[in-house]
Design a protein around this nucleic acid. Structure first.
Lengths: 152, 152
DNA sequence: CAGTATCCGGTCTGATACTG
DNA sequence: CAGTATCAGACCGGATACTG
């Protein structure tokens, strides 16, 4: 078990986790990003899929654009009217591991009865994939073996 | 870039990500779990570290206990009065990879100026560690190579 | 389609104070 | 220490209606 401690090694205010939570820690934002990671780009597609009130969705998208997780672009296919679309930036895409890790956690711990509705495999080997900690030379490290290193 | 899609392959309502967001998707809960992962266990330690209003903290802890992420126990060291403490369950501990992945995302994308305040190494080899997707036989898979598999 | 404008009711928030 | 009680204000969520 984790040893008792009176204080975290890094105060929460300095921890970027706190900032990340400010950004994406609400009921809709993570779900919007989920949809975006699956390729949804248009206002009404987000809206009908998530059921988000339009006012809220509008605000969340605006905020995600301001924060640089989504880019608002104008898309025009021939013979059709131009439409805005919201596509993930690199910064937004980089959240994919977080979202997948959380999804897998939910599949394992929140939905014990059935099979998880979704899983992930390596396109090449077709093997199942899970999230883990690895060293830079590719060895997997169990989470009990992690040590925290502070910068001074 | 992610191909355009009108709908996610799994509707959000069936996705356990949505349930997970309901559980931990608010300003305080993730931060409480962060502290817990660092070994904080006591009400006032959470409170003074996070600055959470006591009423809120009380409610969040209660909720986390109900959901099975924390267990409320009574701890007594000799010569001292018994105290309640909140310790992570296995279910709560299992969120560690999610929290670390999000922390590392924040360190990389939110804090471009400085060094990240914290990093993680393998206790044994002392090498730096990052979160990644791996196959069951331990090969790392880049996130572009993930394929979604739906259960029918 | 892709939004903005408004409005109302509810929840969250945070401060203060009090108890075992 | 570890909470509960109370209260005012901010913010959020959802419905409805209206525009380009």
């Amino acid at each position: 078990m984790i040893p008792l401690s009176r204080k975290s090694p890094v105060p929460p205010a300095q921890c970027n986790l706190a900032k990340a939570v400010d950004l994406i820690g609400d009921r809709w934002t993570l779900l919007i990003l989920r949809s975006a990671l699956y390729g949804v780009r248009r206002f009404d597609d987000f809206q009908s899929e998530l059921g988000t009130p339009r006012t809220i969705l509008s605000g969340r998208l605006k905020n995600l654009v301001e924060q640089g997780l989504l880019a608002r672009r104008t898309y025009k296919s021939e013979g059709r009217r131009a439409r805005p679309e919201y596509v993930l930036t690199d910064k937004g895409e980089a959240l994919r591991p977080v979202l997948i890790a959380l999804t897998q956690w939910g599949d394992h711990w929140l939905d014990c009865d059935g099979q998880p509705p979704i899983s992930f495999t390596d396109m090449q080997s077709r093997q199942a994939v899970h999230t883990a900690f690895v060293t830079d030379d590719g060895r997997e490290v169990p989470s009990e073996n992690l040590r925290i290193v502070l910068r001074r």
